[in-house]
Design a protein around this nucleic acid. Structure first.
Lengths: 348, 348
DNA sequence: CTGTTAGCGCTTTCAT
DNA sequence: ATGAAAGCGCTAACAG
């Protein structure tokens, strides 16, 4: 409101210090070939003028942004928050910036954000894709030749660098835990089969039942319509609890679903774990600290992020051949109250 | 690895369509003065070449990025997650992009991110400042003439646009609730007094005690060293529980602190709410849905974000005079189990 | 050690 | 309705 004040540029600094813009550029990029004296003088001008280099111009000129794009479907899911933390840390170490976006599990937003990132000239993308519907988006990235790594979820009919958990084995372990406690009628609340983790966890669930010689009752598998919303999972769980012959235990596809199951149970005055045992994938750290309650298959979320970033850096540096690489991280059973004690009598 | 493939530019499209770059520019920016026929042809070229405009170049040329910077101290705190959601929503409606950063409650990171944003030529900043130590950062923004709005926290000795909750009244309400239940020995777990919300909530705490004719026992006010870490709050709470004459109720400065208090209580086999009543600021939605437990002063977090964005847009548009504006949003008491039933007998 | 020239990809401004 | 010229702020590449 006072000075018209065009932003101060490298030219202003150059004039102020009595040198050429190029010398200023060298100083602010701490390159070698500048005399101590000149460097000092330029630095002084930078400080007094409050000069901030324009990164747009720099990136345009250098033809590199040193920036990664990160797309996550649900930031309110602590699993993904931790993944992001891992990415940020690894990117910082590699001297790269990160642009973070939530897709809100919406393929259209995902697409829009990816296009933004492309137009932003990010040098790589780390993405936890919404679902198989993200396939065209991955193809877009591939076509635009932007290196990228998928996190947590694979995509049917598409292969590329991937860091994922061992969902099949993890789910099997979780369900075996329930079987070991005496449960025979075990339900599952899952999300769209278009999400690889949901498919894999359902496969593990079936495998565990089969291994124990139990039949799979398809009526005990309920699909939640929205994986980011506990309310949708609540409805799905409610369908199970409303059955004439409801399950005595439920395996939830992830922590959000578990929240929904717990809510449905409360509403029906079904007590966990007394009337219903509950196990899910992914820990909720904060929750676990207040009242350790949920029995979970914990995944090393932060490691997902760091490893994925490392794969991306390798890819960018051309340190690897073209073949897609997959890293599988194990899940660990953490037994807490929600799965309850061994069931006595006719456990159904 | 196959084609050398420089990225396709506006010139490539122009050549392909047999027009000048300028015409392509007009088409991709959907400006009027292009014939239907030309427009169609250019669009076809854009599609077949898979052209993505370079936003760096565009922004540099236009001298505007249509981007806001958002700095949040703790993304694992659901309060801030919701604030971000509100910002994203409002920014999208205003056709602006958002760059999101966590400062991790670290003033140095905050500074670094802000400098990044400045160099990125963001058109405005929305920030939940770490603490009073962020004052120089606000001055930096002011000096660089980047419009900004503070969220949730004010800064001592600095005034600017601000959206905050009514921490004093909210804290007073929370503590009055405890007093109403019969508690006389009420502790507080707070964080650094350099954070305005902590100061205000402590003030409300004191006011409530004073209004009830209760003395403030300074020994019952414990400071947590790190507000983003429940572990630090746990230690602070533990100091209270270890007192020869411990409090019968605790008011926690925020949800993270409440998590710490709950943990400390568990470790000492102090049962909440039977042996200790607990109330805190800010709801934890997810947590609340699984086992509604914590009695909280809920704040309309998402609204913080939308309102702040609106203030920012006003400021950028020059629709307001220079005077700083403050919006205060109310907090609502949500009574749940953790504050317990009325205390009988000598409540200490 | 320092400066000059050219150009990153796009849009503004002014012609035509 | 379309195009040519100039420049956004910076840096690579080459001079000296």
């Amino acid at each position: 409101v006072s000075t018209p004040s065009r932003k101060t540029t490298i030219h202003d600094v150059a004039a102020h210090a009595g040198v050429s813009p190029m010398t200023v550029s060298r100083v602010i990029n701490s390159q070698a070939r500048v005399s101590q004296e000149t460097r000092r003088r330029v630095q002084a001008s930078v400080d007094t003028l409050g000069y901030v280099p324009n990164r747009l111009a720099r990136a345009l000129s250098r033809r590199r942004t040193s920036t990664f794009g990160v797309v996550i479907p649900d930031l309110s899911n602590p699993f993904f928050t931790l993944v992001v933390r891992g990415i940020e840390e690894a990117a910082r170490r590699a001297d790269h910036h990160v642009i973070l976006c939530h897709s809100h599990a919406d393929p259209e937003r995902e697409r829009a954000y990816l296009e933004d990132m492309l137009s932003f000239q990010v040098e790589g993308v780390l993405i936890a894709p919404v679902s198989d519907r993200s396939r065209p988006h991955m193809r877009l990235l591939a076509r635009e030749r932007v290196p990228f790594v998928m996190i947590d979820r694979s995509i049917r009919g598409f292969s590329g660098d991937l860091v994922q958990g061992d969902s099949v084995a993890g789910a099997q372990t979780a369900v075996e835990h329930l079987i070991g406690l005496g449960h025979r009628r075990i339900g599952m609340v899952t999300e769209s089969d278009e999400v690889s983790t949901a498919r894999d966890r359902q496969a593990g669930y079936r495998a565990a039942l089969a291994a124990a010689g139990l039949d799979v009752d398809e009526a005990l598998i309920a699909h939640s319509s929205a994986a980011t919303d506990p309310a949708a999972a609540r409805e799905a769980a409610d369908r199970l609890l409303a059955l004439p012959h409801p399950p005595s235990a439920i395996f939830a596809v992830n922590n959000i679903a578990a929240v929904g199951v717990a809510k449905a149970a409360r509403e029906r005055s079904v007590s966990i774990p007394d009337d219903l045992a509950l196990v899910c994938f992914d820990d909720i750290e904060q929750f676990a600290r207040v009242r350790p309650f949920l029995t979970v298959m914990a995944q090393p979320a932060e490691t997902f992020g760091t490893v994925a970033t490392q794969l991306l850096l390798d890819r960018i540096a051309g340190r690897v051949d073209d073949r897609p690489r997959t890293v599988v991280l194990p899940a660990t059973l953490v037994v807490r109250a929600s799965s309850g004690s061994p069931v006595t009598g006719a456990a159904q």
